[in-house]
Nucleic acid binder design. Structure first.
Lengths: 261, 261
DNA sequence: CCAAAAGTGTTGCTAATACACCCATGT
DNA sequence: ACATGGGTGTATTAGCAACACTTTTGG
C-alpha cells in the first residue's frame, strides 16, 4: 500500500501536492451502507470548517488510474479492499470550487498559502459510489477531519461545498442501476432476511412495495438461496435467512433484471 | 462566442495552452446522428497520425464549466447550438495517454515540444454524447484534422488512442437511457416515419423488433402526433409522417417510459 | 390470547408477444 | 400482376398489482 496519499503523512503534501497529484482533480466517494433498515453514507467532519461534513475524498497521483485513487480512498476510510465501486458523475462547474474554504482549512492547519497554492486552484471532482457491508467497515477519519461516521442518507448534517448535490446524484445513479448491478449483494451481509432486502429496495427507491409481490419477484429471479435458519430475537415471527447464489446472480446481471419497481 | 479554443487560432495555443486550459483534462464528444437508416457518428481525420480518426474534442478553459466546453466542441464541429448533450464517462486510466502520438502531431505542425510541454502530459478525458439532427449539422474539421465526416457507427475507421472504447461506452449509455431521455426526438428530423423511428431503435439496441408491436407501443405512449402527410417517393406504400408532441413527450420522460425493449 | 410481522395463495388486469390479413406503390 | 413494404387487427400468454388467509412469536 502506498503511503503517498493525502490521507497519510499529510502536511508535506499540503505544500507540494502539485508535484505528486494530477492537477485540479479530486475524487469523492459516496460510501453506502445499510443498517437498522436505513441507507447510510459515510461522512467526515472536517476540521476548521464550522462543523461542516464532507464526503471522503482524495487526489489522483500522476501515475495512478483515477479508479485506483477511488479505491485508495475506500481502503483508507473503511479498511476494506475489493470494494464495489462505480463512477457516476463528473462535477465540473467552475463555481463549485470554494477558494475561501480551502484557504481557511489550510490556515487551520498552520499553513498560510500563497495565492497560487495548488489547493486554491479550481478543482473538478469525479464522483464514485461504493457499496460496503456496514458490519465490516471500520470508519476512520483522515488528517483533515475530526470524525468519520455513518449518517442516515435521509437525515444528513450540513455539508461542504456541493457535496449535498453529489450525494443526490449518487442516489439517482443507484436507483437507475438497481436492476443492472449487484446492489443488494454488496450492501447486505452474507445472510439477510427478505424484509431486510425489501427495506433496502424501498429506501433506495423512496417508495413502499408490496411485501408479497416483492418476495415473489425476488425469488423468481432465482438468485436467492433460502437457508434453514431463521432470524430469531425479533418481536414477532422469525423470518428466514437468505443468501445470494453468486453463480446465478452474476449470470442474471449480464442480462439485467426484467421489469422495474 | 469566444475564440480562445484550440479549434481556432490554434498555433499559439500549442505553446501556451497550459496558461489557458484546465490542466490534464480534455473533453471528447460522441456526436450521434441518424441517416439512411444508419446510426452515424461524426469523426475527424487527424493530421500526421497515419490516417487515424478521432472524436471531436477540446479542452476546458480555466474559467469555463466542463459542460460548456463540450458545447463549444459541438458548436464548432457542427455549427449547431442548443444541442442535447449528456456526460457519460470519465476515462481516467494512466495508459490512455499517448505521449508519442501527441509528439508526432506537434512535430507535424512544426512544433518541436520540450519534454514537459503541456500536451505531452497525462490527460484524462470526459466523454459526452450528443444527439443532433443529421440534416442540420454542417461538419467542419478543426485545425488539427484534414476532414470531418459522418461514419456508420457499425463500420468505423481506425481510431486514435482509446477512442474506440469511448464510442463503445457511449453506445451503452445511449442504450441505457433510451427510455429516460428524448433520444428519438433529438436524433430525428421534425417529421419522420414510424419505420424510421423503429430502425433507429433497432440500431441502437442492436436487435430487430416486431414492426406492429413497435408501432402499438410507441403510439400507446401518447407522445406522437400523426400528420396528414405521407412520405412518397419510396418504392412502396407511402408511410405516414409523425411528429413528437413535445408537451406530452417531456411529461412522459419525467417518469421514464415503461417496459424495456 | 392478542398484536404484529412473516409465510403462502388467488384473482383479475395490463401489456408484451406472436401471429394474419389487407392496402398502396413502383417495376 | 406481383413483390415489397406499410397499415390495422386478434388470440395467447406472461407478468404485475391488489388483496385474504394462516402461522409464528413476544409480551
Amino acid at each position: 500500500m502506498k503511503n503517498s496519499h493525502v490521507t497519510q503523512d499529510t502536511d508535506p503534501l499540503l505544500y507540494d501536492g502539485h508535484k505528486r497529484y494530477h492537477p485540479g482533480l479530486s475524487v469523492d466517494c459516496v460510501i453506502f451502507g445499510f443498517h437498522d433498515n436505513q441507507l447510510k453514507v459515510l461522512l467526515l467532519k472536517m476540521s476548521h470548517t464550522d462543523q461542516r461534513w464532507a464526503l471522503p475524498g482524495g487526489f489522483v497521483l500522476k501515475d495512478e488510474d483515477v479508479e485506483s485513487a477511488a479505491h485508495h480512498v475506500l481502503q483508507s476510510r473503511t479498511g476494506l479492499d475489493n470494494i464495489f465501486l462505480r463512477q457516476f458523475y463528473l462535477f465540473g462547474e467552475v463555481e463549485r470550487s470554494d477558494r475561501e474554504l480551502n484557504r481557511k482549512m489550510l490556515q487551520g492547519r498552520g499553513v498560510d498559502p500563497h495565492e497560487d497554492h495548488w489547493l486554491l486552484q479550481r478543482f473538478i471532482t469525479i464522483g464514485y459510489y461504493a457499496l460496503v457491508d456496514f458490519t465490516k467497515a471500520l470508519p476512520r477519519p483522515d488528517e483533515l477531519s475530526d470524525a468519520c461516521d455513518w449518517w442516515d442518507f435521509h437525515n444528513l448534517p450540513p455539508l461542504m461545498m456541493d457535496h449535498a448535490r453529489i450525494l443526490q446524484k449518487a442516489l439517482e445513479a443507484l436507483r437507475q442501476q438497481l436492476n443492472r448491478e449487484p446492489i443488494g449483494y454488496n450492501l447486505l451481509p452474507e445472510k439477510f432476511t427478505m424484509p431486510e432486502l425489501q427495506k433496502l429496495y424501498e429506501t433506495i427507491l423512496g417508495k413502499t412495495l408490496d411485501r408479497r409481490n416483492f418476495q415473489r419477484k425476488m425469488l423468481a429471479y432465482g438468485i436467492l438461496e433460502r437457508l434453514n435458519e431463521r432470524r430469531s430475537g425479533g418481536a414477532h415471527k422469525a423470518p428466514y435467512l437468505y443468501r445470494f447464489d453468486l453463480a446465478s446472480y452474476h449470470k442474471a446481471l449480464e442480462e439485467g433484471f426484467s421489469g422495474g419497481w
